[in-house]
Amino acid sequence: METSHQPRNSGTGKIFNNPFLERLTRTHISLPLTAFSMISIYLIYQSVAVMGIAVGTTMLLFLGGLLFFTFIEYMMHRHVFHMTEDTPAKKKFVYTAHGVHHDYPRDKDRLAMPLPVSLVVSFVFFLIYRLIMGDYAYAFLPGFLMGYAAYLWVHYMVHAFQPPKNALKIWWVHHGIHHYKQPDRAFGVSSPIWDLVFRTMPEKSK
């Protein structure tokens, strides 16, 4: 299926004809938020109480993981979910992973990756971090996971709620521009920092 790039204000898209697979593409936002919060608490406990990493070091690694997630979020959104759809396989992948969300941005059941998939991806990241930084991965990964949880919550809020009348409105404006005006810009959801770094902030003239 191809993305129409014409956002609907209601309704939902169909990804799979198989009803079981189609059901697996839907996730209530509370599931990943709860799961990754609990996993992060456990890993921080392991870092301090079991691995013996100092509390201050754990906090710095946690913040490092949080910041690193915002970078991964930006790169995935820009270069994977918005890759050039020059083959049928790429078109199907982009629509399944992200295009259906652009077609139906108010579909609350598709604002988060299915929990089984996100758990597997998180475990792969843990193995990579463990290989690179050893026991410090127990402090770094929780920051990364809570970065993901923060991204999910921000993404859910901007699609499910009306924008507030305060400084937090920038999240709604920034992501709304990406969805409705300039899909080739404003890739940061939880933070616009990497849009600033890589010069993909929205063009004011538009």
Rank of each mutant, 00 (worst) to 15 (best):
V94M: 08
D184Q: 14
T58F: 00
H175I: 07
T3A: 14
I15G: 05
N17H: 13
H98I: 07
V121W: 03
I41M: 14
I44E: 03
P142F: 03
N9Y: 03
I132C: 07
T57C: 04
A49Q: 09
S205K: 14
R106E: 09
V154M: 10
H159W: 00
L115K: 09
A149K: 03
F125H: 03
L131I: 00
A97E: 04
F16W: 10
V55T: 06
F68M: 13
H98R: 10
I15W: 01
D86V: 08
F140Q: 00
G52A: 12
M83G: 13
L196S: 11
K90Y: 08
P32K: 10
K169S: 10
V100Y: 04
S10I: 03
P114N: 13
G64Y: 12
F68G: 08
V124Q: 07
P105A: 11
M157A: 10
T84P: 01
A97G: 12
M113G: 08
A150V: 13
W194G: 05
H79D: 07
R106H: 15
A149F: 00
G188A: 10
R8V: 05
P142Q: 01
P202H: 09
F71T: 02
M75Y: 05
S40K: 04
Y136R: 02
W171L: 09
M83L: 15
P163Q: 01
Y104V: 12
L141I: 15
Y180C: 01
L33N: 07
G188Q: 04
G11I: 02
F144H: 04
L67F: 12
H77A: 13
L60I: 09
Y129W: 13
L119P: 10
Q182C: 13
P142M: 07
F161A: 02
F161S: 05
I193R: 00
E2Q: 15
M51K: 11
T84G: 07
L168G: 02
F62G: 05
A97L: 12
Y95F: 15
S122L: 05
A186P: 11
A139S: 15
A160G: 00
Y148T: 04
A160R: 10
R185F: 12
E203C: 09
K204G: 11
L127G: 09
Y148K: 07
F126D: 03
M76D: 03
H178W: 11
T34Q: 04
V100R: 12
V100L: 12
I132K: 01
F126Y: 15
T12F: 10
M201I: 12
Y129F: 15
P163N: 06
E85I: 10
P142G: 08
L24C: 14
I41W: 08
T84W: 01
A186M: 10
R130L: 07
V158C: 06
L43T: 01
D135R: 06
T87D: 09
V197R: 02
F81G: 08
Y42S: 13
V154K: 01
F69V: 02
E203M: 12
F81I: 02
K169D: 08
G11H: 05
K165P: 07
N18G: 03
P183F: 05
